[in-house]
Design a protein around this nucleic acid. Structure first.
Length: 564
DNA sequence: CTAGGGTTAG
């Protein structure tokens, strides 16, 4: 049947060929594409018919045969913007965003200007790569060509690109300036706010959207439910649930069921999560994983493991995400045996190769089950080690007080080319603090910012104050605190106060106490420690004064409590 | 001739 087209005269063949090829692209029929390609070559029709060649590139690109697409593209004597766009589209669609951006550049080097479709795909590549700068460049081109007026899709992709890059203000601004916006624009922004941990803003966008008379649909609901789960907005979650039921959206949108289970599970309402789960027509891997993860997150690791067993009995296939939660559950209850079985399945299915979370989940599981040598061995054999897997192992050694091993890990990870992060330094400073390793601690604190450009957090400062204080270097601790950008956290002052008590330092103690109650007037421990310091130094009048202050603070706090 | 935007579990 296909040959029928080939027997026609060359001049009439073009249009019909394109129809066939478009069909191939739509149905991802690579074979048919190959046959047509062969015939076109035989008839010598590819050289002077760029439209046909472009359609063929599109078939290869859509089917994921990017090598063929590129080869054909290279062989063309004449390439236009459509050829480039078809190729770029293929790269973006199959996860080669970097290559797509390279093509975009080369196309311009050849003197061709992108059209709306080219820009659309390129924007998507920027979003995937979190390349806001390149995205901004595309944005400028779009503005210059005045494309936003007639093309709502481009506008929405711009919002999505900025949102995915975490440039949320910019995304919001672009959305507000669009000549026309719809629920897709808002959904992109809402998802962005949610992904970057701004749940409240996400909800306020939903309100703004409704204010404009736009009503959320199934996709909007999935995003909103994710927000509700992440910030524990059970009330809103329940409201969305009733809306979904009222509109009877579940039968046609199975993803919504998963989102509902996840929302209830994250909010800790596991009974409702189970109810919704049981009401699903066919609970799939995602729904099961959401439930398992919910149980783990809310301290019911045994139930999580029960779920996992049931899931296996039902013949469902757990995947990398499921295993990550199951391994966490194993770590929580010390189920090394189940963990080991899961490990074997993971190896058999080759899941470690393309998942960067699972490796550290394994190390963490063995660590928590006190199988440290096994954890270390697993880490060594990971196809891709990362900072998370090393942190997990180091935390395990630190937990057992094995400071030498922690320090050895720190060297090892760097020799493997992996940079430490803020968590690594927390572990390091903690172990130094607990082992009186003053010089080492100071060295780590120094290099974390100088060599690794990690801004010390309150936790890091607290570790250092603790380390210096415990070892009697109170003056150095004071100097450090004075250097802090904002020493307005109680933990800092309690660390220093504790040290003052240990070393009977009334002077520094008084200073620390004053700051401590400035930060938190009702910090009872601060009063108690200060009273002890004064009493220990024989300063009874001062001790009495602080006792009176404490009584007043307690009284005031109790009263405030009543009012509330 | 290239297309059809925002989406769920760690």
């Amino acid at each position: 049947m296909r040959l029928k087209y080939m027997r026609k005269l060359p001049c009439s063949i073009g249009k019909e060929c394109i129809t066939v090829l478009r069909d191939c692209a739509l149905k991802k029929e690579l074979c048919t594409g190959n046959i047509v390609h062969a015939h076109l070559l035989q008839l010598g029709l590819l050289d002077n018919r760029s439209h046909v060649a472009n359609s063929l590139i599109d078939v290869y690109a859509k089917c994921g045969d990017l090598l063929q697409a590129s080869r054909l593209f290279q062989s063309l004597p004449y390439r236009d913007v459509v050829s480039w766009t078809a190729l770029i589209q293929g790269f973006v669609r199959h996860g080669h965003s970097q290559e797509a951006l390279r093509c975009y550049q080369k196309m311009q080097d050849e003197g061709l200007s992108p059209n709306a479709l080219t820009l659309s795909y390129t924007l998507r590549a920027c979003a995937r790569m979190r390349a806001a700068d390149k995205g901004q460049e595309i944005h400028d081109v779009i503005t210059k060509q005045g494309l936003l007026k007639s093309n709502i899709v481009l506008g929405n992709q711009l919002v999505d690109m900025y949102a995915k890059c975490g440039a949320l203000k910019k995304a919001h601004h672009v959305l507000l300036e669009l000549p026309a916006r719809d629920i897709v624009s808002w959904s992109a922004l809402i998802t962005g706010y949610a992904d970057w941990g701004h749940g409240q803003e996400a909800l306020s966008c939903l309100a703004d959207m409704q204010q404009e008379g736009l009503s959320p649909d199934a996709v909007t609901f999935t995003s909103i439910l994710a927000v509700c789960g992440s910030i524990g907005e059970l009330g809103m979650g329940k409201y969305i649930h009733t809306e979904i039921a009222r509109r009877d959206l579940l039968p046609n949108h199975p993803a919504l069921g998963n989102s509902l289970v996840d929302m209830y599970a994250k909010c800790g309402h596991l009974i409702t999560a189970e109810q919704v789960f049981k009401g699903l027509p066919v609970p799939g891997t995602i729904a099961w994983s959401a439930l398992i993860s919910g149980y783990v997150q809310h301290g019911q690791a045994d139930k999580a493991l029960d779920c996992y067993k049931q899931m296996e009995c039902k013949g469902l296939f757990p995947n990398a995400v499921t295993f990550a939660s199951v391994l966490k559950a194993c770590g929580c209850v010390g189920a090394a045996e189940i963990g080991g079985q899961v490990h074997e399945v993971i190896l058999k299915e080759g899941l470690l190769a393309n998942d960067y979370v699972l490796g550290s989940a394994l190390v963490d599981m063995y660590t928590k089950c006190s199988c440290l040598s096994k954890a270390h061995q697993v880490l060594e054999q990971l196809p891709a080690q990362n900072v998370f897997s090393w942190n997990a192992l180091m935390a395990g050694y630190a937990h057992q007080g094995r400071s030498d091993d922690v320090l050895y890990c720190f060297k090892q990870m760097q020799s493997k080319g992996i940079s430490p992060d803020a968590v690594t330094f927390s572990t390091l400073l903690n172990i130094c603090s607990h082992n009186g390793l003053v010089e080492e601690g100071q060295m780590f604190f120094g290099i974390m910012s100088s060599k690794f450009s990690i801004e010390p957090s309150t936790e890091h400062y607290t570790c250092m104050v603790d380390l210096l204080g415990r070892s009697g270097h109170l003056d150095t601790a004071v100097t450090l605190i004075k250097k802090m950008p904002a020493a307005n956290h109680s933990v800092i002052w309690s660390a220093l106060l504790g040290a003052c008590q240990k070393w009977d330092d009334v002077h520094v103690g008084k200073w620390a106490f004053e700051h401590a109650i400035q930060v938190d007037k009702y910090d009872d421990t601060a009063y108690i420690v200060m009273i002890k310091i004064y009493t220990g130094a024989g300063l009874d009048t001062e001790a009495e004064r602080v006792k009176a202050m404490r009584a007043e603070a307690r009284h005031e706090k109790a009263q405030r409590h009543c009012v509330c």
